[in-house]
Design a protein around this nucleic acid. Structure first.
Lengths: 193, 193
DNA sequence: TGCGTAGTGTATTCTATAGTACAAAATATG
DNA sequence: CATATTTTGTACTATAGAATACACTACGCA
């Protein structure tokens, strides 16, 4: 019962994700955002609050969308398969031609000034949560019997996670999909027997 | 034959390294810099040019100093030992209590706006150069006979490098030294026979 | 001892950027 | 058809941050 939105909130968020991903939180200006989202400033503030709130909403959508491969990978029948799918998913996402390189959770705000501390911390938590999910999946695998109980699940999860994040850094440096696929094979060569 | 500097250029650079490392290039303000360096703005501009030039000088000093472990590691007698020392050096540097977490080459400017593109590209090149040095060392090892000629040296170098950078991201999330040492063991388990 | 040179300190300028005021526009409902 | 309500567009404000003007200071050398 009022003037309707001219834009689709989710499409606008997708555009914002792209900008934050490519330029990082601090490197992104409101003009970058309004241009990419195809809306003007008051509409952005009306719909999303402010720059930080927009980032948080974009991050939530990123986790549900592009980063959804993580949850799906962890649903694999075995821990080993889950790890392989995690690695492959990270490469595919980070080198997809339609995306900026790497991963929003790594590129968004790794080191920042005080103003962006909230955003930086949100990403840190986001990465920690992902790692914790991997660990839990590996612990489950130990209960299931498809992963040796002698293995330290936390260490193994951290190892896979470290490789995923290293590949995100590497794709920002222009590593190709084929090059990163080779990393997966090497990484999995360390998988415990 | 003029008024002498009140400050030591290298000490000032060390302070600048610390700030850029902790907050990233874009997250660092000139006030952050002048406070940490203990000098005022005109002195900074007089001695270093501008913010970007200061960063480049700081990066050069970082490469020669804190990141000097890379070159030293590559002087190890065997490729395997070089890889282990690379990994250990990265953990030690990235988790040293006197340092910000991680690595300046990763945290300094991974994704930026247009203004910081030069800095971002300099770091990309810096990382690429490090990786190339590792690859060359591994190729040398193949000539020396301490690394199988069947191995793809570029892939192996990229693998080690990816782990190093992933650990840098991880230490920013608060991973401890002990936790990252475990990663080294796992990483080296993939070392080719 | 005076002068030239380079460095320092305060205060300022200029610009970019996050955020907003306000009026016009567009719809649903009475 | 009128009105309440939300969105939109233009223009603005406030502020922070990079860079600098200018006067003053300290030292080497003539």
């Amino acid at each position: 019962m009022a003037r309707p939105r001219k834009f689709d909130e989710n499409s606008a968020l997708d555009a914002a994700i792209g900008v934050f991903w490519a330029k990082g939180y601090e490197g992104t200006t409101l003009e970058d955002l309004t241009r990419a989202m195809g809306i003007n400033r008051p509409s952005l503030y009306g719909a999303f609050g402010n720059k930080e709130a927009l980032f948080q909403k974009a991050l939530a959508r990123y986790n549900a969308g592009p980063a959804g491969y993580i949850v799906r990978a962890l649903e694999s029948p075995t821990a080993r398969e889950a790890a392989e799918r995690l690695l492959r998913g990270a490469v595919d996402l980070g080198t997809h031609p339609d995306n900026p390189g790497g991963c929003l959770a790594v590129h968004g705000a790794l080191a920042t000034g005080e103003d962006a501390a909230c955003v930086r911390d949100a990403l840190t938590q986001c990465r920690a949560a992902a790692e914790a999910n991997v660990r839990k999946r590996f612990e489950q695998a130990q209960s299931d019997g498809d992963l040796s109980p002698k293995v330290n699940a936390a260490d193994l999860a951290r190892y896979i996670t470290v490789v995923v994040r290293g590949m995100a850094v590497e794709s920002a440096s222009g590593a190709t999909r084929a090059q990163l696929y080779q990393i997966i094979d090497l990484t999995m060569a360390a998988w415990p027997k």
